[in-house]
Design a protein around this nucleic acid. Structure first.
Lengths: 367, 367
DNA sequence: CGCGACATCCAAACCGCTTTGGATTGAGTC
DNA sequence: GACTCAATCCAAAGCGGTTTGGATGTCGCG
């Protein structure tokens, strides 16, 4: 505990129980004004003259005054914070690698708006309870829903709780309208498949993420739609889904390059998988972008660049960080607008960037 | 704004301005007790009989009562929250890839202890101000310092502010005692280098992280110490430092394998770099773990496994997630113990796991 | 000069919880 | 039966802001 050593004979109180920050009351006393006036001056209310407002603002910065957040929250009823609930699966302990970049983007927006970002790590069986207590404790004004699955129960829950939210991704089978920001995964993979098909590839493999995830299911749909449109057969031996690691890509490519009728092109869901595919290709003495083509989706993660100027992999590209910014802004807007306001959605289009990993198909001798 | 549509003729008030959560006062009224007693019952104070305590607890769960966090915080003066300030460098926009796993570990601990984790994304020139306002707004009880650099100013600042903190890593040149949790990077790289030297390698390359970072500087020191101890020359052509990407490893290895006296073994700071090194090796028709050895540091990131059972790369291994847990617990302990309590530190030892990427040195024809 | 309108400021209530300092009750003691 | 003491409970005063409902002063205008 902090003890006040001396009673300073100063007009300015130097210590309170928080020790280091001054209170509104103290500031008011220094200025010879009432707390009311000081509060109003700082919050831009019209009932205070410009001159005193300046005087107050100047004193506030000079004394490094910042209103205590807890008090402000209690008084206004707004938490000035956004929650991100991150489920840690009890089976496979994967922390989503795009998460860091997403919150970097979202965090920028929150910081500018004076909001806090609070992250709850929670075992995925407790997720529902996590949202309920979040609501009931009242420490967030809204939440971002990460990594929606097919049939995800969270939108229904959050609607029931009346907690504003924006989904990063979509929940295909939720009927009621809800706010979301998503990449057009179907279109991206449709275009990717079409691009490879246009290069003459007829054995195009899909190395996908876990298809219980909504985004992965959509990607497969796009892939299949493009195959169908081109009259190409859908071959289960060329389709795999799993956690998007280097090893996944390697293992899948090993298998698919050893088929009697091997893959000549790969569509992967992440750069890591693509790197694994590349390794399997090169291990066979084949050349990436000559013998075998690879096209990947690229989330533009900051620690995982696809080349600097010239892209290494041909890719459908869409920044997760930017998605974070957009999600955050949409949620803040939604909170400001109130529950009756119309619901916004935003579909982002991935751009197709052509790199060095794709080329016209050539006939190969199965190794 | 929420409007109360009907005045329900119920004993139990269903609505307040927060709309969805009930207040202590309401709960007390339902129970026919005073708020004081209810508060004490729920917080485990002895001045309340076991029978009423049970009655209160039961009613609380039945009505899904959770004390409003803001009010609690204001009343107790404790924020019940820990801050993580993440600087986003304005030059190279790297979001540290270990960050996600670290906070996953820390978050588990916070959740168990009833603490919130609040993340501030901030441009790195504003970092000092970020800590000051954090302090002055009073919305955290302490902070974790991420990614310390050589000569990092943050410990001094935080000591000045009187804000409890734990550093993940160390600040070599800060004289005053401070709390930290770190891997023994020096020792890990010393051992790694010695291990490769024991295999007969005399041209051991170091592919390091940016050496302005304290951890990277320590790693180099360990590497150099081992070289010196073995009487091996320190060759600048075999040492590189940069952002730890696949491309970094690839580029470095390309250069170092093309030297007149090429590297026969590599020590890398991350799995990504190691993967790049592997690619350069295989591209030359050499075999990893036969012609050229690679030993990497492995943070055990959840999305970046070094094999499942059998490690792919020989590695010095230390879980960042576990470090997150330890850091968080240390900080909570420190906050509970008060500023006068002795300062704790914790040095974690990396384990050396032998995988398939290292083998005795053999003479190579420079390609 | 008197009056209303407006500008400017303030006292006090309130947000929901904790905690201090009693008040009340009942059992135990002589 | 009076008295002590512990066990239980409560009223009220904070915590540091916001906000309602005036109070006061100033000015313009008939």
């Amino acid at each position: 505990m902090l003890t006040r050593l001396f009673a300073l004979p100063s007009l300015q109180p130097v210590s309170n129980r928080f020790g280091f920050s001054m209170t509104l009351k103290e500031l008011a006393q220094i200025l010879g004004l009432s707390p009311t006036t000081v509060s109003r001056a700082l919050n831009g209310y019209p009932e205070v003259s410009e001159s005193t407002r300046r005087r107050v603002a100047e004193a506030a910065t000079r004394h490094n005054y910042h209103p205590n957040v807890q008090a402000k929250r209690l008084a206004t009823g707004r938490a000035m914070a956004i929650g991100h609930v991150i489920p840690i699966s009890t089976q496979h302990e994967i922390v989503n690698p795009v998460f860091a970049d997403f919150i970097a983007g979202a965090g920028e927006v929150y910081a500018r708006a004076g909001y806090d970002m609070i992250i709850s790590i929670v075992a995925d069986d407790d997720e529902e309870q996590a949202y309920r207590t979040l609501r009931s404790k009242g420490n967030v004004d809204g939440v971002i829903v990460h990594g929606p699955k097919r049939g995800d129960p969270r939108p229904a829950l959050l609607d029931e709780l009346g907690l504003p939210y924006v989904v990063h991704g979509r929940v295909s089978d939720y009927a009621a309208p809800y706010a979301w920001v998503d990449v057009n995964n179907t279109r991206a993979f449709e275009r990717g498949t079409a691009f490879l098909s246009d290069l003459g590839h007829r054995r195009i493999a899909l190395v996908n993420g876990l298809e219980s995830m909504d985004f992965a299911a959509r990607r497969r749909e796009g892939y299949e739609a493009a195959l169908a449109a081109r009259g190409l057969a859908r071959d289960p031996a060329l389709m795999t889904a799993g956690e998007m690691t280097e090893a996944q890509g390697y293992d899948a490519a090993c298998a698919m390059l050893s088929l009697p009728d091997p893959a000549t092109a790969f569509l992967t869901s992440s750069l890591l998988s693509a790197m694994g595919v590349r390794r399997a290709i090169e291990e066979r003495g084949l050349a990436l972008g000559r013998d075998v083509s690879v096209l990947t989706h690229d989330d533009e993660l900051s620690y995982m660049k696809n080349g600097t100027e010239l892209p290494i992999f041909t890719a459908t590209r869409s920044s997760v960080r930017e998605a974070g910014r957009i999600c955050a802004q949409m949620l803040l807007d939604r909170i400001a607008a109130g529950p009756e306001a119309p619901i916004a959605t935003r579909l982002l289009e991935a751009v197709l960037v052509v790199g060095q990993s794709t080329a016209p198909a050539r006939h190969l001798i199965a190794s």
